[in-house]
Amino acid sequence: MSAVETAISARKDAGSGALIGYLPVGFPDLPTSIEAAVALVENGVDVLELGVPYSDPVMDGTVIQQATQAALAGGFRLRHAFDAVAAISARVSAPILLMTYWNPIIQFGIDKFADELLAAGGAGLITPDLIPDEGADWLATSDRTGLDRVFLAAPSSTEARLRQAVTLSRGFVYAVSTMGITGARSDVDAAARSLVSRLRDVEATSVCVGLGISTAEQVREVLGYADGAIVGSALVKALADGGVDAVARAAAALADGTRLN
């Protein structure tokens, strides 16, 4: 079992599920993004998802777009992702996944990127714009290195595609809660529950739901049927508005949703 699977399954064994927290590397600057990520873990986040800023983030809504564009404008370079993973993993034990669009990885070199991520203490990659159909190189590299590979499953995915995502993902399957992009929503779509159920039908054992989750109540609701809840924009907004203290409080509040009533 990978470190991510172990972390998720430990929370399941305790009767609940995992909280996965997203923040972009380099926002508002590299040192603060590291402090903020550490604060997430210290306040109840079980798995970290660190975003790699990219010029054309087609799956991201306004909050994350603005943060990642600010990181790029502030001088983010790809190597900072390894610096951040190394610094965070030296301080906290939660496994760290990078969430990255695919072109930067291709340009860096898939094998070289994987080796450096492993050396920094990273656990794997979430790849929003890489479907397994186009991922032969990454499948081979992740098999060689043992890094986790998280593919997306969507409400629109066919059963065959869900099965493919389940078979080829390691760590967890990222269940996209709604047909849309990242950003807080008042209701987590009923489509999420149905999607997780369809993923269970094709024997998924580790499913985390993301997109639109921003409150402890939503986390609790999602963990009623999924193995993990992924929160991004709400944390990024807290960091943007109130700095590390605010994002720590936001994480603690969200983590309340992982506790049994």
């Binding site: 714009d129 159909d133 186009e134 593919f151 629109s156 995915s157 066919t158 996209v176």
Partner: peptide, 15 residues
């Protein structure tokens, strides 16, 4: 070429 797309759009592209 290819289909370097987010999964949510694959069904529409297939259609």
């Amino acid at each position: 070429g290819g289909r370097h797309m987010p999964e949510p759009l694959v069904a529409a592209i297939d259609e």
